[in-house]
Design a protein around this nucleic acid. Structure first.
Length: 246
DNA sequence: ATGGGCACCTGGCTGC
DNA sequence: TGCAGCCAGGTGCCCA
């Protein structure tokens, strides 16, 4: 492990290089938006934040700006982390990764059976918070970021401002279905590239072309031709169609 | 327990 | 051209 800049969202622990040295990678997993790289004696927990990326490069490739750390592999390659904004993070844990404070309280995965209409209906019952903010709460469901929150609500025909507790049972079912559908559809074509996102092979995601409302303020709704509107919720931009969503 | 607001950063774009 | 201002794919934490 080579760390060039420890200043990520949380400083990278001082002796992480020594802790990791010589260990074999046993398995790579994901929980919510955290990547878990299991080694023999523990695990690396990686988050890409908003601008982070990982690429496999040749071991002698000179690091460019914002390439903060390398996981040096015995294949001669290195797994290189790039993150201009430094909202990403890197932790080493010797306990079961799921027990780490950042992972311990995470809610069900959106594509799991546990994230059902019945579950969403139940957890929304006593909450006054707007439904868009609720589905972005990682203690209630993980993996729904700002793009897919707006998109799923559009697909479900539900206003992002609706108080969570005002959802009917049928709407809760419809919304869980919309979240699952939009995530599956986006994953299938490589995700959403807004500006510079590329995957590990350097290719962009093509879901941007399929967006109904996100970043389309002032444009015509693709269903009813009404002008798509934008406003702010919890310091994040929300996009919606006032005719298609209630 | 819930909800609102702030914080962490840099880069790119817009408009004067 | 230069520069100020604004915005951005996330999410933990503090406070009321």
């Amino acid at each position: 492990m080579i760390v060039r800049d420890r200043r990520l969202r949380w400083p990278i622990m001082a002796n992480l290089e020594a802790a990791v040295r010589g260990q074999r990678v046993s398995r790579v997993e994901r929980r919510a938006k955290y990547l878990i790289i299991r080694l023999q004696g523990g695990a690396l927990i990686v988050h890409l934040g908003m601008s982070g990326s990982l690429r496999l490069v040749g071991g002698r490739t000179a690091p460019k700006p914002h390439e903060h750390w390398d996981l040096v592999l015995d294949s001669g390659q290195v797994l290189r982390f790039h993150d201009p904004r430094r909202f990403g993070s890197l932790f080493w844990t010797q306990e079961e990764p799921g027990e780490h404070p950042l992972l311990k309280k995470l809610a069900p995965e959106p594509l799991s059976a546990a994230f059902s209409g019945a579950y969403l209906f139940r957890i929304t019952r006593k909450r006054a918070v707007a439904i868009k903010q609720l589905i972005m709460n990682s203690q209630l469901v993980v993996g729904v970021g700002n793009i897919y929150a707006s998109e799923a609500l559009f697909r479900a025909g539900i206003s992002p401002r609706r108080a969570a507790r005002r959802l009917t049972r049928a709407e809760a079912l419809k919304l869980t279905g919309a979240i699952k559908a939009v995530l599956k559809a986006a994953i299938k074509i490589g995700g959403t590239t807004l500006r510079d996102y590329v995957n590990a092979d350097g290719l962009p995601g093509y879901f941007r072309q399929k967006l109904f409302v996100y970043e389309r303020a002032g444009e015509h709704c693709r269903v009813c031709k009404t002008i798509v509107r934008q406003f702010t919720q919890g310091q994040r931009s929300t996009y919606w169609c006032a005719v298609c969503q209630h």
